[in-house]
């Protein structure tokens, strides 16, 4: 009950947030929150460390951008198209990667994501180093003009809340419980008769699709899809966001991504502009050394200890 009250409070805050803050920054926060939450679905709840999620995030951005700009699809169809293709990429990469565990799994996902990156660099439809620019925002459901930042914000909020609810539902479903069992002891889950590979693959595809939805939405917000979304830096950044916020907690990745994106944004124009990666690195080291459960994980531990 307490958590659902917390969620309602957060939703209420998000509904009024654009009155106080710059909507585009908020939309960026939301997209990254969804991305990190999708990533957390397989790392936090499935125990699979993927180092290739940028391929889904950036790939969907390109697919959506192309669908909206060249084919002139309606905005929501374009986002669905991008997310769907990211899911298909997830199916292909997942099929290969889930056969191995631990570091080998991470390396396979990284290698496949790098292949996707080089595909994006050299394909003419992505615009290579220039990126895909001037993606039209269009109209939501053919009615609401998304060129207006406030309308766009509520459109993004709807997508991200839907994605987040899907993750919450998945984690609490029997499927999520089996996933947790596999994470905690894969052999035992197998001996109980669960088809471990299928569960892992399904979780991987779901995570890839939602990461794709986040990337697709981001490309519509900024009207731009670029290589930095598909670069392995992005895969690393989402790991950082998830760990900092709290691995295996539902709200953690959202909090972590909010902290990282806000920091990047605020530091970009100050005296520390050239030092952003260093600052983030120091935060990461501090997080791993002193509060391993992440921000939300530590708060939850304190909460439990004191009540």
């Amino acid at each position: 009950m307490k958590t659902s009250a917390g969620y309602l409070l957060a939703l209420a805050a998000l509904l009024v947030a654009p009155l106080a803050f710059y909507p585009i920054l908020l939309m960026k926060l939301l997209c990254f929150a969804l991305f990190a939450s999708a990533f957390n679905l397989i790392l936090g709840f499935g125990g699979l460390l993927s180092f290739g999620h940028a391929a889904f995030f950036g790939g969907a951005a390109y697919f959506t951008g192309h669908a909206l700009k060249v084919w002139g699809l309606p905005t929501e169809m374009g986002i669905l198209f991008g997310a769907g293709l990211a899911g298909l990429m997830g199916l292909a990469i997942g099929q290969l990667a889930i056969r191995r565990q631990g570091i080998y799994f991470a390396m396979i996902t990284l290698a496949m994501a790098q292949m996707a990156y080089f595909f994006f660099v050299s394909s003419p439809f992505t615009g290579g180093e220039n990126g895909l620019q001037g993606i039209p925002r269009g109209k939501a459901l053919g009615v609401f003009d998304l060129q207006d930042d406030l309308t766009m914000y509520y459109f993004v909020l709807a997508i991200c809340v839907a994605g987040f609810l899907l993750i919450v539902r998945t984690v609490h479903s029997p499927f999520g419980q089996v996933l947790a069992a596999i994470r905690d002891n894969e052999n035992r889950a197998r001996s109980l008769g669960y088809d471990v590979e299928r569960y892992k693959l399904l979780a991987f595809v779901l995570s890839a699709t939602l990461a794709g939805a986040a990337g697709a939405t981001k490309s519509v917000v900024f009207q731009l899809a670029s290589l930095s979304d598909a670069h392995w830096h992005m895969s690393g950044e989402v790991v950082l966001m998830t760990l900092l916020g709290g691995l295996g907690t539902l709200a953690g990745p959202a909090v972590g991504s909010a902290v990282i994106v806000t920091l990047q944004n605020k530091l970009a124009t100050g005296v520390l502009a050239a030092w952003v990666p260093v600052v983030l690195g120091v935060i990461f080291v501090a997080c791993v050394l002193t509060f391993r459960r992440g921000i939300v994980g530590e708060l939850r531990a304190i909460w439990r200890k004191s009540f």
């Binding site: 710059y22 585009i24 920054l25 960026k28 220039n130 990126g131 620019q133 900024f222 009207q223 731009l224 670029s226 930095s228 979304d229 970009a268 124009t269 502009a273 050239a274």
Partner: peptide, 17 residues
């Protein structure tokens, strides 16, 4: 002033803001 790092997305985001 800001450093765009030769990246189109950073430049566009900064300019828009």
């Amino acid at each position: 002033s800001a450093d765009h790092q030769n990246k189109a997305d950073i430049a566009a985001n900064t300019a828009r803001e």
